[in-house]
Design a protein around this nucleic acid. Sequence first.
DNA 1: AAACGTAGTATATAAAAAGATACCATAAGG
DNA 2: CCTTATGGTATCTTTTTATATACTACGTTT
Lengths: 126, 126
Amino acid sequence: MSLNCKYEKVLEVLLGKWKTAILYQLYSKGTMRFGELQRAIPDITKKMLTQQLRELEYHDILLREVYHQIPPKVEYSISAYGQGLLPVLLEMNDWGMAHIQHLNELYGEEGSVKAFVSRIDEIAGK
Amino acid sequence: MSLNCKYEKVLEVLLGKWKTAILYQLYSKGTMRFGELQRAIPDITKKMLTQQLRELEYHDILLREVYHQIPPKVEYSISAYGQGLLPVLLEMNDWGMAHIQHLNELYGEEGSVKAFVSRIDEIAGK
DNA sequence: AAACGTAGTATATAAAAAGATACCATAAGG
DNA sequence: CCTTATGGTATCTTTTTATATACTACGTTT
């Protein structure tokens, strides 16, 4: 078996409450400005958006282009390297959708978070 | 594009500091007892181990078999359904290994966490 | 009768992540 | 000369996660 724990690296790259939403926007829409991203992702703060963008940029998933003008303009997009992550995300996506279905079958519609918590309590015998 | 944010579900399943290690053990070794898992994963506490096992059990990734004897014996293994997660993990694994390599090329060997932090600071202009 | 082994639970604490809010620089437009 | 727009940063508080440590149940062994 060639599973050697390195898939954790993917988790590291995707880790953070907002990465999913950011990547979804950028993979779908191509290029977006900072403010555009912020408007597209309700409730995210500038701080969080900046932080998560920097982390993705560090991992070379994102490209950041600064236009030196005032008011400032900064554009974000998926890098060429970052495109290579897409197939992985798509496979995760497929499994994820099937899993939501599976959880419904196991625990019913109301499911997801609510059922999750109470099921945990139940398993724990509370 | 069929990326619709559901890959987040995989993250949810894999979320938690110790899930990676637990799954690694169980996918590799098949069936393990509670204490065996604890010994195989240095530094994990019983509390964390129990919690993470329960979460994986909730998601039907794991099977928990209780032998009613004293001292107690409880065996954990990957469920049939959980086997379906393996291809996803393997693909994540492949990308992860390549990514570690990519980060080395970008930032050098000492890299990973240390370089990560300082690079973030650098990008942030500190 | 006390100690051991197993698979936990309970409770309190510390550390990490996220959120709220205020602030900054600068040019253009009124 | 005051306001607006943009893309942030700084600081503090709250929430979420993880850790440390002690405790339990019970049959078997010493």
